[in-house]
Structure formats: C-alpha cells, structure tokens
C-alpha cells in the first residue's frame, strides 16, 4: 500500500490508521513515540513488554503484517496502514488459548514470563513458516529473544509441544490453524 507524503514539525501529532488484533484504530500520535509505547500506552495493550528498548532482548516482538518485528525499534507512525498482532491477539475472543500458548503452558516454558510475549510472537512466525523445525532451528530462530529465568530448555520444549498441538489441530481443518491462526 502506498502512503501519501507527510510532514510533522516537532510537537505536532500525525493521524494514523492501524489494525491491531483485527480491530481498526485511528490514532493521533507524536511521530517520535515508539510503536511499543503507542501500543502499550495509547492503545492500552500492555502485554507487549519493554526489556531493553534497543532491539536486543526481543520482549517487544510483535507481528507487523505477519512478520516479527521489534516494536521498540519502530515508530508508531510506521504502523500507518499496517496489520499488527500482539500477544493479546492470539487467544480466541472467548479466551481459549492459542495452541502455542497452550503448549507453552503445558511445557511450563516460562517463569516470570516477562519475556513470553516476544517468544510467543516469534514462535507464531517460526511455526507458520516452518511447521516442523528441528531443535537447532528452534534455538536459532529464538536466539533473538532473551530469557533470563529459564535456561531455554523449557521454551524449546514448549515449541516442540506446540508442533504437536498444531499438527493435531490441523488434521481435518483448514490451513488457518496450521499457520498458527495468524495471517
């Protein structure tokens, strides 16, 4: 989608339209605000966490047009016209957990779980693109997310459990669930 050119002097806000978890939002934001702050403070979805604000920890990872991105290293205005999925968008509206959330619970993947939004969103993309990853592939793909509590084994097991859950839920259903339910 092409965007028109815009200019916003210091202090002036810009209107943007963004779809977050399938809900359309029209926001007026100061261009310097990070997308993470916009999602957390302006939209009120605090499930996306900030661990470093310089792109290393991965806690802020969200899906922007389906691709995992650091919400701390994007401006809110970058989301203009985009479709965003955050941790809050994974479960069904009735509260049923997404198979990856369920798998991570079963595997007891997390402790403080501050890192979990980033791992979950990275895993959604990983299993969509590679539904049957090897342990090495899982470790490599998740190496952009830091966890200080677990030593990672339980998280890798969580992804492996998710492969099983997604595999069984995909049987007899459309490809939608096989992609983690996130377009």
């Amino acid at each position: 989608m092409s965007l028109p050119s815009v200019n916003a002097p210091i202090g002036q806000t810009l209107p943007i339209s963004v779809t977050i978890n399938e809900t359309a939002h029209s926001l007026d934001i100061e261009p310097r605000r990070s997308l993470a702050d916009v999602i957390r403070e302006d939209v009120g979805l605090t499930g996306t966490h900030l661990g470093c604000e310089h792109g290393v920890c991965g806690a802020c990872t969200i899906l922007v047009d389906g691709e995992p991105s650091r919400a701390c290293l994007m401006l809110g205005v970058h989301a203009d016209g985009a479709e965003i999925t955050t941790i809050e968008g994974l479960a069904e509206p009735d509260g049923t957990k997404h198979p990856i959330q369920e798998a991570m619970k079963q595997a007891m993947s997390f402790q403080c779980a501050f890192c979990s939004p980033g791992f979950l969103m990275s895993t959604v993309a990983l299993l969509r693109d590679n539904p049957n990853p090897t342990e090495a592939e899982i470790r490599e793909e998740l190496s952009g997310n830091l966890c200080r509590c677990t030593g990672y084994t339980s998280i890798v097991e969580g992804v492996e459990t998710a492969v099983t859950l997604l595999g069984s839920s995909a049987l007899g259903s459309t490809g939608d669930q096989a992609t983690g339910g996130v377009a």
């Binding site: 957390r40 979805l45 605090t46 499930g47 996306t48 966490h49 900030l50 955050t86 941790i87 809050e88 994974l90 479960a91 509260g95 957990k97 959330q101 991570m104 619970k105 079963q106 007891m108 997390f110 779980a113 501050f114 979990s116 939004p117 979950l120």
Partner: peptide, 19 residues
C-alpha cells in the same frame, strides 16, 4: 501441575509495574 500463573501471563494479562 501446570502453572496457574500462565492463565494470565501467557495471554498478555499480567500486571507488571510498567502496566
């Protein structure tokens, strides 16, 4: 026993101080 904490934490409903 699976963690009861995960029912809020894994769906983005935890309440951390910044929230």
């Amino acid at each position: 026993v699976q963690r009861v904490e995960d029912d809020r934490l894994l769906v983005g409903k935890g309440e951390f101080v910044a929230d």
